[in-house]
Design a protein around this nucleic acid. Structure first.
Lengths: 194, 194
DNA sequence: TTTCCCTGAGAACGATCGTTCTCTAGAGTA
DNA sequence: TACTCTAGAGAACGATCGTTCTCAGGGAAA
């Protein structure tokens, strides 16, 4: 087995196990078993669990944002439709079997107080998502684009945590309505209700 | 030392330590040291760590909601001011030293996948908060009060997680603006911007 | 004072986990 | 065939942690 393939298999196993059950609930030995990579090579690829955890978070950040952007690109006919498409994507995510919330919020709750690396990874992810939303909003004639992007980010995180804890995927649809209302309220010349 | 005082001291120590560092990062021995309660009596009061954790969450839920309701009662002159007061209270909370996010979201991220008791405690807390917001909204002439309460709950959870991970207490003020906009949009006869 | 019971302090136990070490088997080469 | 190197399997190690056990001390009752 090559180094590169071992890395991929380890990251796949780590993502599945860490996300499903939490980081501290999964031992290195279990990752070895799930990946089929020997313990020796595991520690050659990732010299400590800490480094595997950070690689897992970086990997997941990339995949998550790529999936979101791909969906919005495909489903939003106009820039004006983009914010709603973000929440449509959330709905499909919430419906997936094994959905268990935001990996970064979960990791932060578990290790953010004790691991600066985990805290930084969560911050970087949220910053990147915020920047993505700001990019979408910039194409709209909103009076205060930065404020609107921040509000959409709040709704997004709120929808994720609420859907996670309540178990109700339709949370995304309610968040979508709120997002549409806020977009309308932020564009001069439109009324907020009706 | 009486049974009751031991319980109080244990819950106080558990709340401080669990909230600050995470549940799995704090051992029973450390709680013994911080509370001054002997290990024997600790296990008399709470036969397992699991039960101490659930008691901690129930205790925190009560204190948290009591604090919020007290602030809103004091600071909202009219029902119309209540939603904004909720987010003002959030701002004071975010500013407190040692603020580290929502204890229930953190606990869910850590143990929700593995402990049904923790998952249930988080759900109960969020349900109670949602019910509280619904009670506030019911006093307003909103067209769809349930929808508005749900939206405010989304903003609240979003503000908590964003403030936690970014470390910026002013997140509460941005959430407040969004809340005010949504309240305005939900009341017939008002415009959403301007 | 003697006995009994309860308590606290902390040692001990058993399990788990991250990490390292050992040993063996096999591939490649002369 | 003999030698060398490497990798994998898994034992081993040391630390931590939840929980239980031991033991000494002190107060209450007779």
């Amino acid at each position: 087995m090559q180094q590169e393939e071992a890395r991929v298999r380890l990251l796949d196993a780590a993502e599945e196990l860490f996300y499903a059950r939490g980081i501290q609930a999964v031992g290195m030995d279990e990752i070895r078993g799930a990946s089929g990579v020997s313990l020796k090579r595991l520690y050659q690829s990732f010299p400590s669990k800490h480094e595997l955890v950070e690689a897992y978070l970086r990997h997941r950040d990339e995949r998550w944002r790529t999936s979101l952007a791909g969906y919005v690109d495909t489903h939003a006919a106009t820039p004006r439709d983009a914010p709603a498409a973000v929440f449509d994507w959330l709905h499909t995510w919430f419906t997936e079997p094994g959905f268990r919330g935001c990996a970064f919020i979960n990791a932060y709750g578990e290790l953010g107080a004790v691991s600066e690396g985990v805290a930084r990874a969560a911050r970087d992810h949220k910053d990147a998502v915020h920047a993505y939303l700001a990019g979408l909003v910039r194409k709209l004639p909103a009076g205060t684009p930065q404020a609107l992007a921040g509000q959409l980010a709040l709704l997004l995180d709120g929808a994720i945590t609420t859907a996670t804890i309540s178990g109700d995927p339709d949370t995304a649809l309610r968040a979508r309505e709120a997002a549409v209302a806020l977009v309308a309220a932020a564009i001069p010349g439109e009324t907020g209700n009706g």
